[in-house]
Amino acid sequence: MKNTFFTFCLIAVSGTLFAQEKRADEGLIRITLNNYIEGRNNGDTARLASAFHRQADLRFRNDETGNLVIWTLPEYIGKFTPGKKMNCTGKIIYVDIAGSAAQAKIELYYPDRTYADYINLLRIGDKWVIASKVYSLYSNGK
């Protein structure tokens, strides 16, 4: 009987600790995602770059050719003018965590268009960073 009670308590404590760790990870991921959204929308290229791993890449389909395009992080950051704010808002749609990997969807809203960003993140040391991003543009009518 004592062993059954001890096993039950151990399982309960483990489940609680796992849930707390997952909530803590989600909080750290959301900080990274907000650095991405706020950095890009406000022209804060240092904040934007801080959300990414230095070897991250960004992928999208060129709508004119239909081909895959891959940008390195420096190429992507170079597309932004430091200090120039965009007429854009962003929203985290979901975060899904599995161990040291996570995926998130972000929508970026402009007056005439919306981007869907699918973000892959990894926990490197004690920090969550964006490892890759795939995105697509679609009209606000979807």
Rank of each mutant, 00 (worst) to 15 (best):
M1Q: 09
M1T: 09
F5A: 13
F6M: 08
C9P: 01
V13S: 02
S14R: 00
G15R: 00
K22H: 03
R23E: 12
R23Q: 12
R23L: 13
R23A: 15
A24E: 08
L28F: 10
I29P: 00
N34P: 06
N34I: 08
Y36W: 10
E38S: 12
N41F: 04
D44A: 00
D44Q: 04
T45C: 09
T45S: 09
T45N: 00
A49K: 06
A49F: 02
A49M: 05
S50G: 12
Q55M: 15
R59Y: 04
R61A: 12
N62V: 07
T65E: 09
G66R: 07
G66A: 07
G66N: 14
I70Q: 05
W71T: 01
W71I: 05
W71M: 14
L73M: 13
L73E: 04
P74D: 02
E75A: 08
G78T: 08
G78E: 11
K79W: 12
C88F: 08
C88I: 11
T89I: 11
T89R: 08
T89F: 12
I92W: 06
I92T: 15
I93G: 12
D96N: 15
A98S: 14
A98Q: 14
S100H: 13
A104M: 10
A104R: 02
K105G: 04
I106T: 07
I106P: 03
E107Y: 09
E107Q: 09
L108F: 14
Y109T: 01
Y109R: 09
P111Q: 02
D112M: 02
D117E: 02
L121A: 04
L122H: 06
L122R: 06
R123L: 05
D126V: 03
W128A: 01
W128T: 04
V129I: 03
I130S: 01
I130R: 02
I130A: 02
S132V: 06
S132I: 05
V134G: 15
Y135Q: 06
S136M: 14
Y138P: 03
